[in-house]
Design a protein around this nucleic acid. Structure first.
Lengths: 194, 194
DNA sequence: GTCTATAATTTGATAGAC
DNA sequence: GTCTATCAAATTATAGAC
């Protein structure tokens, strides 16, 4: 009763390999034939599941955002101190880079933004907005005296530092630099103190 | 004596439009025909000046790096306080984003790194190394008591913050966020104090 | 759902005339 | 140096058989 592939299996495999390809080489460097070869089917079958490349990009990005938000959890969870949640956030990116040996999908797509289909652009923007909102809430718990704008500014800075750190670490071919940069962020900034 | 085009003119125009296209849409989203159309020639003429796309990418990146290093100037110049030089550095990226309405060439190429021709990858790495070296010297002047590794870590963090801030600001479609993030970097970090 | 076959376009690159 | 002409390969996408 489980020796044959379940129905949604191919679709998920396509999402998996598309995500992997975008995260390593970007949106403009893979074709439906590449995806098909990775999955072990033909490109026409990929089009059956995702009519256009834009559709595929949208679905990959949505799934990625949902997964990351699920990983992050509730920013107001009383069982987790805000300082711990910031470490938790940074650790999410670290997992992206070290465990997956790939970039953050939405950092990659953010760089390519101008060349993306409009529907994909919207999803990338959404990821960033959701990240800023989550971090803003954590910073508001961490520094209740701060104004909302200050909390959002800190959120933007952390998000930017993560995206930039991944690019710089990979360009210099030293993944460990990501750790060094993120620790400098935590130590150098007054986030965890003031 | 100047009514007709000088000899190197076309080559420079090609570099200009290639740089603009890479900085807005990346390396994998333009063709030699695009470049030719921008300059007002045919694609075969572009190949005369740059045999391959890799050659063009290398030359664009080298010119960009040289220009940025020239803009930065001497990190040990006694006429400029180190704190001023950090502002000068940040202002360079601000010019990229606001004046040119484009990304940093090497931030863009850094994201695309895995899909680039190897010779272009090397030039992008070089840009990052040169930036880190320049910033490291400035930080050593700013905090002479710091160890070299600490100065390099701060350099990496500033470089990463700039690259990330450009991506985030553009993705959220608010160029002014770049300013907000860079000011948070300066204020939040103890760079200019300790 | 997956396949073969193919259309229509674009790509990086070259040969050779002017 | 720039052009026309062209190539071989790759691209997104569709039609229709199984």
């Amino acid at each position: 009763m489980a020796l044959q592939r379940s129905q949604g299996d191919t679709l998920i495999k396509i999402l998996d390999v598309a995500e992997a390809r975008i995260r390593s080489n970007g949106f403009n460097d893979f074709s439906f034939r590449d995806i098909a070869a990775d999955v072990g089917i033909k490109s026409a079958s990929v089009h059956y599941h995702f009519p256009t490349k834009s559709d595929l990009g949208v679905r990959v990005t949505r799934r990625y955002t949902a997964r990351f938000l699920h990983y992050l959890g509730d920013p107001e969870d009383k069982n987790n101190a805000p300082a711990e949640l910031l470490l938790h956030y940074i650790n999410g990116y670290k997992k992206f880079l070290i465990d997956d040996e790939a970039m953050c999908l939405c950092g990659m797509l953010g760089a390519e933004l101008a060349s993306l289909p409009e529907p994909v652009r919207e999803e990338v923007k959404r990821f960033n907005e959701d990240n800023v909102e989550w971090l803003k809430r954590v910073y508001q718990r961490l520094n209740p005296k701060d104004k909302k704008k200050k909390a959002k500014t800190k959120a933007l800075h952390l998000l930017a530092s993560m995206q930039g750190a991944m690019i710089v670490a990979r360009t210099l071919n030293e993944p460990k630099l990501f750790d060094r940069i993120s620790k400098e962020f935590l130590g150098g900034a007054k986030n965890l103190v003031a």
